[in-house]
Design a protein around this nucleic acid. Structure first.
Lengths: 296, 296
DNA sequence: ATGTCTTACGGAAGACGTAATAATA
DNA sequence: TATTATTACGTCTTCCGTAAGACAT
């Protein structure tokens, strides 16, 4: 059963003219002739009575046409419907957020839900220590993360904000009262390290081991989550770098957050697995992108 | 819409295993992977969630499958039905006979009708002067003729008999009383010629212009049909060669038929247009062939 | 470590166009 | 004679297998 032949048969049975059929199918008349010959051989009988002047369906051709047409249309429709469904944004989209549901996150989700009422958002927390695991495991469809991300199997999308870092320290720490500190001063504060399967560059970005100019920063233990880290901070075991909105979210009396100058800003954005990109993922990125445009 | 991809999708959605799918389709697993990737790109979304250990349909894949299956089966069935119909022997077959409906012809038709009661035979006379015109014009589906026939667009089938020629002459002709005559003696009898669109070799076979050894045979006028020829014979304008059964059929008091020795026998057989071969034509040839086998 | 899906690459089948040919009205 | 279907032949796409790679269990 050769599809091209069937397609050609259906067109020729409408046109009853090889040249016009060829035109409609973007073929040469000779090719149409070949295809019909081939189909007739396959079927085992003539489907058209043709001279160089007239083309007519044989009785068998008539029956075959009537038999074939509905199924052919059904097939084409099934493919069209699947394409449409693939473009459709419905069902549930599972969105990962990085440790802390800041306003940027909740605002993005609200914007998406307003724009696509047919699609429900399921928010899933992603630990700092493993920012891409749930993406790759298919447990979330798209995730908020810190840009840039350079993993070959991931794509990054909209960037939502560019915000400064703050250093969380115990209120009893000498820096607790400062209005701000420079990045180079981090060399004097042991930072809480990040454990887990996150790639090296990710761990280095959240808890750098050197200042921008290269001075080593001491390390104070390893934690897997923001809450664990803050607990260590409250116990005055070290400092922890958080972006400003996250710091604001976690404000508490026993911790003081001091703005840090001289560090590249923290960029919140979206990432997803390239091979698992769906219409909903594209739509979420698109909706978030629009919000980001306005807020930047 | 690529057919191979759809076919592969349907099999893979049953097997949920690339290697087994490849086996069923006589393909390599790699090719199956390519095809599915291509289909998913075409649709715009994943149809299977797969790792190297597990293959499962996505929700979209499930819907696509349910949507596609009936139309695909319908298509396959339509082709099957057409193939079956092409093999079927029903309706009307138009059979041409050459000038004279001898017993070989009527016997063949009866044999075919007995064997294929669903197919009606319509007998059409074909003039000696144009043995292939009605075949080529599509006015008959198959025709009795004299073998061998060497026309590029025609096929020959069963040979029914091999019979000697007889020379029809007026009862007043000197040869009228003879028990038989040799082929060389034709040089002394003007033969009635054959007019019309028949090829040269055909006219030469029915009214040769030379004896087997090469002696010229005089010509006595031109006619288009057997009856016209016999009229000329009765008027003693010349002789006419007929095969024995035809001579017997046309026995009349004013004409004497004298067996001719030394000529290759007349062979009655079937011919049809190669491009217009149908199941009925094949069946007719087959049925006649069986009769011929018994009678030879 | 093994079974399974995916990717890269090269060879071969066949899809297609061009142009000459045959046939009809 | 003009129009149209068919055939022959060369080119080029793409189909497909092989084999190596990546990944999950």
């Amino acid at each position: 059963m050769e599809f091209r032949e069937l397609e050609c048969f259906l067109v020729l049975s409408q046109e009853l003219h090889f040249a016009r059929t060829a035109e409609r199918l973007y073929l040469s008349p000779g090719r149409v002739s070949q295809l019909m010959r081939s189909l007739e051989t396959r079927i085992g009988a003539r489907l058209f009575n043709r001279t160089s002047r007239r083309v007519r369906l044989t009785p068998l051709g008539e029956r075959f046409l009537a038999d074939l047409r509905p199924s052919y249309d059904g097939l084409a429709d099934a493919v069209s419907r699947a394409k449409a469904a693939a473009r459709e944004v419905t069902g549930v989209i599972r969105v990962g957020f990085l440790a802390t549901p800041t306003d940027a996150v909740t605002g993005s989700v609200r914007a998406f839900e307003r724009r696509y009422p047919g699609c429900e958002v399921e928010l899933v927390e992603i630990p700092l220590s493993d920012p891409f695991g749930k993406l790759r495991a298919g447990q979330v469809d798209i995730a908020f993360t810190l840009l840039p991300v350079d993993e070959p199997d991931l794509v990054t999308g909209a960037a939502l904000n560019r915000v400064p870092y703050q250093l969380g320290v115990s209120v009893r720490h000498p820096l607790a009262g400062r209005a701000s500190i420079g990045a180079e001063e981090l060399a004097s504060v042991p930072l809480i390290g990040l454990a887990g399967p996150a790639p090296r560059w990710w761990r280095e970005r959240l808890a750098p081991s050197v200042t921008p100019s290269g001075r080593p920063i001491p390390r104070a233990g390893m934690v897997a989550t923001t809450q664990e880290g803050l607990t260590q901070v409250a116990l005055n075991r070290g400092g922890e770098l958080l972006c400003a909105p996250t710091a604001a979210y976690h404000r508490r009396p026993d911790i003081s957050f001091v703005p840090v100058t001289g560090l590249p800003p923290s960029i919140l954005g979206l990432a997803w697995v390239r091979a698992a990109e769906t219409a909903a993922v594209r739509a979420f990125d698109g909706a978030v992108s629009e919000v980001g445009m306005r807020s930047l």
